[in-house]
């Protein structure tokens, strides 16, 4: 592969085009052109400058990851979060363990709490209806000594279910916020492929 300025810029551009807004992309490319220009003015060769910059693919991956994480931060949505996580996974195999696994565990946890919440929320009123039927004298079979206990039981379970669902919502928001902070930190620490040192 040719290690020229044109090639470096071409690779960066091709990897980032369509992802970043045009003005931001132009700004990034001009940073690297300036780097090459200054380097050459200092008597260095394009090839040498290319090598010490390291792989443009890695730089592009890092910029993409930052872009998607910022987007997920300013515009909270599942889609944006998935993009951010996908882009961060591209930074290194390392992140399969340090990003993907914790993410899946958290999603499973939130899902389990949510399902329990829904089950209790549905089961509560059902138990209430059963207790009312009992009061009206149409019991299938008696669960409670007194139907009044059934009413209280039903209210308790319903409340508990609703609290779980609401709590789950806030928990999800909390994990989202902390997760974004973690991804930002992660991008600053996780390196791409080995640099040619």
């Amino acid at each position: 592969m040719l290690q020229t300025e044109a090639e470096y810029i071409r690779i960066l551009k091709s990897r980032l085009e369509g992802t970043l807004p045009a003005d931001e992309l132009a700004d990034i490319l001009s940073d690297y052109s300036e780097h090459f220009r200054m380097g050459k003015a200092n008597g260095r060769l394009e090839e040498e400058l290319f090598r010490s910059l390291g792989s443009p693919e890695d730089v592009a991956r890092e910029i993409r990851a930052t872009h998607f994480v910022n987007k997920a931060e300013s515009n909270k949505s599942c889609g944006n979060l998935l993009h951010a996580i996908g882009a961060t996974l591209g930074l290194g195999l390392f992140n399969l363990v340090f990003v993907l696994v914790p993410f899946i565990l958290l999603v499973v946890l939130l899902l389990v709490v949510f399902i329990f919440g829904i089950v209790f929320t549905v089961f509560g009123p059902a138990a209430g209806i059963y207790a009312i039927l009992q009061i009206l004298g149409i019991p299938a079979f008696a669960i409670w000594q007194s139907p009044l206990a059934g009413i209280f039981f039903s209210l308790g379970i319903t409340t508990f279910g609703l609290l779980l669902v609401i709590g789950d919502y806030f928990l999800a928001r909390f994990f989202y916020r902390v997760g974004i902070r973690y991804l930002k930190w992660n991008i600053g620490v996780i390196k791409g492929t080995e640099c040619v040192a």
Binding site: I28, D31, Y32, H35, S52, L53, G54, S55, P56, D58, V59, E62, I63, T66, N70, K184, I187, G188, K191, G192, C195, V196, A197
Partner: peptide, 17 residues
């Protein structure tokens, strides 16, 4: 410090953000 110099520019952008 021996690093891939190219990663300093994305870092500068994040510091600016």
């Amino acid at each position: 410090i021996d690093i891939s110099e190219g990663t300093i520019y994305p870092l500068l952008r994040r510091l600016k953000d």
